[in-house]
Design a binder for these strands. Structure first.
Lengths: 159, 159
DNA sequence: CCTACACTATTCATAATATGAATAAATATT
DNA sequence: AATATTTATTCATATTATGAATAGTGTAGG
């Protein structure tokens, strides 16, 4: 009995593992599609869009600060900023306190685009949550929180 | 009272929306790190690794079939296959029934690498699930399933 | 003061990821 | 047999990204 029980539990666990893989892949795929959609809709390479959205919470950013936040090389940021400047979405001035650094900020056009994108992102996540009643919403949020924590734990023990 | 209640519910919903955004971003970020890790560990560009893993379930694949499964252009597949052939992981023969198509399959070395990667992927997902007791596991799986479905629904109504 | 060191941003070479038009060869259709 | 379709490849182009080398600029200690 015990061995039979163990075996069937093992089978079920294996099923759950595969299912988890599939669900995570599907979710990540869904987010990739969201990126492509946003890129087309807001007519911006996704990397530039991501860069633009940093200014939601910060008025001025430096190349170095952006590189840290996006977790990319500084040389990459130089390129992204030049694209955003060309499109008239951000502008770059010299820091009056330190001639080495450049302070980058949104133009009026950039602020508008940033707001537009923010609204879009809030809307889609609202549409996701609105498919559940408040109680279920709570369950899902907690489950997602626990799952994400578990994933981070595994990641931390990987290296 | 009613208005106060509604307002605080609205606040809470807004909090949940932001939280959902953050959690999804964190999860996707975690998966991106997993990709980078796998790429380094198995010494393969991630796109080639992904291509290789298609042969878990299929003995022979054509360029066209791979393009459909990976959702990329055929020209991209040609490049991926040439990389995998150069590394001795796959080989390509002509279809005896149709001289236009090439049948691509794993070499012995390719089969070994594929198996290695599969084991790694099962292990990490097992490590994720093992952090929960069976009951909680069920809750999380169901929540993730519902959330994924909700996300697909929103995606479908996007275009 | 001024030299040595550190910091900031940029440029350049390189690579991975990907698309789409044009093409060549083989097969299907009429 | 002529025409259309299918399959894979090549080529030009774009996006995403890194890292080494470089040019100014700032700072701390002698």
């Amino acid at each position: 009995m015990n061995s039979v029980g163990s075996s069937s539990n093992g089978e079920f666990l294996k099923y759950q593992i595969t299912k988890l893989q599939d669900l995570i892949n599907q979710m990540v795929g869904c987010c990739e599609d969201k990126r492509l959609y946003q890129s087309r809709r807001f007519d911006l390479p996704y990397a530039e869009l991501r860069c633009l959205m940093l200014f939601r919470t910060e008025r001025y950013l430096t190349v170095k600060g952006i590189a840290q936040r996006l977790d990319v090389a500084k040389s990459r940021v130089t390129k992204l900023i030049s694209g955003l400047v060309r499109k008239g979405l951000v502008e770059s001035i010299e820091d009056p306190k330190d001639a080495r650094v450049k302070l980058i900020s949104l133009t009026r056009k950039g602020k508008e685009k940033c707001k537009e994108i923010e609204v879009f992102q809030l809307e889609i996540h609202e549409k996701i949550l609105s498919q559940f009643d408040p109680e279920e919403r709570g369950h899902i949020m907690r489950a997602l929180e626990n799952l994400t924590m578990a994933m981070e734990t595994v990641k931390a023990n990987l290296t």
